[in-house]
């Protein structure tokens, strides 16, 4: 399907026992999709696999289809160009002694930051940011949790990914900041036509913002994970 990003035939074995068996997620482009399930059901593991981080796993199988391109889950570098994961601990994503603007400009770095390329701070900021009243020249450590989460989302978007994975983006935020983050996310999805897969336990918060599918992950009796 041309207007969807599909994850197909995901298989993963842990200690020789099946963990994921034939997992399939089909996400309509330009929508916010959710992945829900109990703690320990494998949501974060699935996100790590999709991001191309197989550090703790071997024998991962599966394919991600972006319109005409089909990319195997073992092609880490190709996956990392198209899919980005914003971790639950979003502070890992930021250099908090630098300003919001500087953090965004760090996204110009290649895999090997050049000693010859001079830093440019003239980053083009999205229009939606004006609504959120963020002082972009303040060191990030002085911003609120919600504002820092917004920055981590913007940094992820700077890399022009086709799919953004968010692992519990509002877990450490109060309800007001959590709502602000989702409002920003929806605005940026509309502006840039992005596809997002969010892991979130707060159904009440998530429900008004979800424009795509709700994937539910459950543990079968045999220990394998099932997604519906």
């Amino acid at each position: 399907m041309k207007d969807s990003i599909c994850v197909e035939n995901v298989h993963l074995f842990m200690n020789r026992a099946p963990f994921f068996q034939n997992v399939r997620l089909c996400m309509k482009k330009g929508c916010l999709h959710s992945l829900t399930g109990k703690n320990g059901s494998g949501k974060s593991t699935l996100l790590s696999i999709l991001k191309g981080d197989h550090t703790n796993f071997s024998n991962v199988q599966g394919v991600v289809s972006f319109a005409e391109h089909r990319i195997s889950l073992t092609m880490f570098k190709e996956l990392q160009k198209r899919i980005i994961l914003v971790p639950q601990k979003y502070d890992l994503f930021l250099a908090d002694q630098f300003s919001f603007r500087e953090n965004l400009s760090f996204m110009d770095f290649g895999t090997y930051p050049s000693p010859l390329k001079q830093m440019k701070t003239g980053v083009v900021l999205p229009k939606v940011l004006e609504r959120f009243d963020i002082d972009i020249d303040r060191p990030v450590r002085l911003l609120s949790g919600g504002q820092r989460q917004i920055l981590s989302l913007l940094m992820a978007i700077q890399k022009n990914p086709e799919l953004i994975l968010l692992d519990e983006p509002t877990a450490s935020l109060d309800p007001i900041n959590a709502k602000m983050v989702f409002e920003f996310l929806m605005a940026i999805i509309d502006e840039k036509n992005l596809t997002c897969l969010v892991v979130c336990h707060d159904e009440e918060l998530l429900q008004p913002f979800r424009t795509g599918s709700d994937f539910r992950i459950s543990v079968l009796k045999c220990g394998a994970r099932h997604v519906e």
């Binding site: 994503f93 895999t111 930051p113 050049s114």
Partner: peptide
Amino acid sequence: LLKSHLGYSLAIYGNNPHFFKQHAVS
């Protein structure tokens, strides 16, 4: 050098050593 990408990277490393892994920088 301090104004370059590498110079900023050195300061970022001192601030948050996990930054690079998150952003696929070596």
